[in-house]
Structure formats: structure tokens, C-alpha cells
């Protein structure tokens, strides 16, 4: 552009705006959109895996496995999400550090809990104090993803459990009659047929997941809401780019971002439903064939 952003006080109009929008903090703001997308992209599959494990566990024949699966689903579902989001990262962090402490510093005999302090030896710290800042941030982000996945996995687990039960008995029995093992029945018939019953519930969960991503800031991750508030608030002339309270505009951007995201999700889920409805003796399946009037 050829415009120097070195002294913003000399700039006006569009030139000022373009320089303003390219500051380091704005870059962090843009990057935080990516953080949200990455969180969603990792959390969703991990939550689905947790949910499947929970659902399969809760239907297991072995009593301890069954209790574990049911316990996971009902305990996590029964606790307010925000409490869980705050609790899990701290619990996981201290849990990991405690294990490392026991393994790596066996000579330290003092209790880990000293009054209100949680003290582990220096080399057991996670991440190490000497580790670079980005590693600390990634570690914090990973704990956040894990907490989201644990919470949403429990809800997904409940959805999956209902979906497993909804698959007609005769479909499974036929597979048995043709010599399939329990594992084959699960992979070849139960799992593929379950999705159609699980998808509506999962689509709800996905929407909710998108909408709770601002909770990331509770976990110390600087997300889009944090930056929108930070950048939008009024800046006095002490700043290089002074401006009045612009939070309204920043939040409007967030609004549009979330609306766009949920709209795209709706389209994707509609396609998935159509795919799994293909040829099914359901209302949705018949509608595709034009066998059902409007």
C-alpha cells in the first residue's frame, strides 16, 4: 500500500483504518477465530469417541464396565457445565503433575498438599517453568479441549445410548443368524444404523458446543470474546490508535461469525441426514423418493 503505519497520528480515513486493523493485537484477534475453529474441530471427534465409549460401556455385559459408562454419563450430565469446565483442567493438571512427581521425584517425601498449596518438585511441573510461552499456551488449550470433550462426550454418550437402543432388534438378530460375531454385528449393523437415530441429538449438541466456545476465556485461553472486548473498549489518546467505545461493532462481528458457523453446520447436518436416510423406511427416507405427500 505504501502507507507507513509508523506514526498513526498522521494518518486519516481508510489509511488509518487499515493500519489500525493490522496491529499486533488485531492479528491475535484474527488468530483467536482460528483457535475457536481448532477447538471445535478437535473437540467434536474426541467427544464423539468419548460418547461412543460411554454408550458402549453403559450397555456392556461386564458390570464394572457398565457402571463406569453409566457413571460417566450421569455424573457429567448432572453437573453444571461451567463448574466442570473450571474443575476439569485444574484436576487434570494437578493429577498429571502428581503422577510425574511420584515417578520423577521419589526422594521427596513431603506431602504434595501443604496447607492450601499444591507443591510438586520442579521437574514434575507441567509444562516446565523453563518451557517457552507457546508450550504453556498449547498445554492450557489442550486441557480446555479435553474438558469440552469430556462434558460433550457425556451428552453424546446419552444420545448414542438411545440411538443404539432404537436400532430394530431384528436387524441385529439377522446378522447373528448369518454367523456374525458380536463384534461384527456391532461394526457392520448396529453402528451404521445407529447414526440416523443419533444425528438429530448430535446436531443439537454441536450447536450448543459452538455456542459455549466463549467459555474458553474462563479457562485462560484468549478467545474471540476476550479480544473483542479488549480491542473494542474506548482507547484514550495514550494509545497509538485512540477511538471511542467500539465494542458494539466488534461484538457484531462475533455475532455474524457465529451465525455463519451455525448456518454452515445446519447445511452439513441436513446433508448427513439425507445420506443416512437413504433408502431407509423412515419418513425422511420416503420423502427423498417422493413417496410421501407434503
Amino acid at each position: 500500500m505504501g502507507v507507513s503505519c509508523a506514526d498513526p497520528s498522521l494518518l486519516e480515513g481508510l489509511a488509518w483504518l487499515s493500519c489500525y486493523l493490522m496491529t499486533g493485537k488485531h492479528m491475535a484477534f484474527y488468530l483467536s477465530f482460528l483457535t475457536v475453529l481448532i477447538l471445535l474441530a478437535i473437540t467434536a471427534p474426541v467427544a464423539i469417541i468419548f460418547g461412543l465409549l460411554g454408550a458402549v460401556g453403559s450397555r456392556a455385559r461386564l458390570l464394572p464396565v457398565r457402571l463406569l459408562g453409566r457413571g460417566y454419563i450421569s455424573v457429567v450430565r448432572g453437573v453444571p457445565d461451567i463448574v466442570f469446565f473450571l474443575f476439569v483442567p485444574i484436576a487434570l493438571d494437578q493429577g498429571f503433575e502428581y503422577l510425574r512427581h511420584r515417578i520423577m521425584c521419589p526422594e521427596v517425601l513431603e506431602p504434595v498438599r501443604q496447607g492450601n498449596d499444591f507443591v510438586v518438585c520442579t521437574i514434575a511441573k507441567l509444562p516446565l517453568n523453563s518451557d517457552p510461552q507457546w508450550l504453556h499456551e498449547i498445554y492450557g488449550f489442550a486441557l480446555a479441549v479435553l474438558s469440552f470433550a469430556i462434558v460433550f462426550g457425556a451428552f453424546a454418550g446419552n444420545t448414542f445410548r438411545g440411538a443404539f437402543e432404537a436400532v430394530p432388534r431384528n436387524q441385529l438378530e439377522t446378522a447373528e443368524a448369518y454367523g456374525m460375531s458380536r463384534l461384527q454385528v456391532f461394526w457392520r449393523v448396529l453402528l451404521p444404523q445407529m447414526w440416523i437415530y443419533a444425528l438429530p441429538g448430535l446436531s443439537n449438541l454441536w450447536m450448543i458446543l459452538i455456542k459455549v466456545t466463549p467459555l474458553l476465556f474462563l479457562l485462560g485461553v484468549e478467545d474471540i470474546v476476550y479480544w473483542a472486548r479488549e480491542l473494542g473498549s474506548a482507547k484514550t489518546s495514550a494509545f497509538s490508535f485512540p477511538h471511542p467505545d467500539w465494542r458494539l461493532w466488534y461484538f457484531l462481528v462475533l455475532l455474524l461469525f457465529y451465525l455463519g458457523l451455525t448456518k454452515i453446520s445446519e447445511i452439513v447436518f441436513a446433508r448427513l441426514m439425507a445420506r443416512y436416510n437413504m433408502g431407509q423406511a423412515t419418513l425422511g427416507g420416503s420423502r427423498q423418493l417422493g413417496q410421501v405427500g407434503r
Binding site: 431384528n170 443368524a177 448369518y178 456374525m180 457392520r188 449393523v189 444404523q193
Partner: peptide, 26 residues
Amino acid sequence: SMVFQSFNLWAHMTVLKNVIEAPVTV
């Protein structure tokens, strides 16, 4: 092989896939 009153074809597979399923997997 058993043939059922309510057919019990696997709903998520085409007719051909229904027929080759057990021969291939089992």
C-alpha cells in the same frame, strides 16, 4: 440360512450389499 417373515434385509445396505455381506465378512 434363515429367511424371516419380515424379510429383515439390512436397511442401510443396498440389495447387492445385503447379499454379499455375510459371504464376505463371515
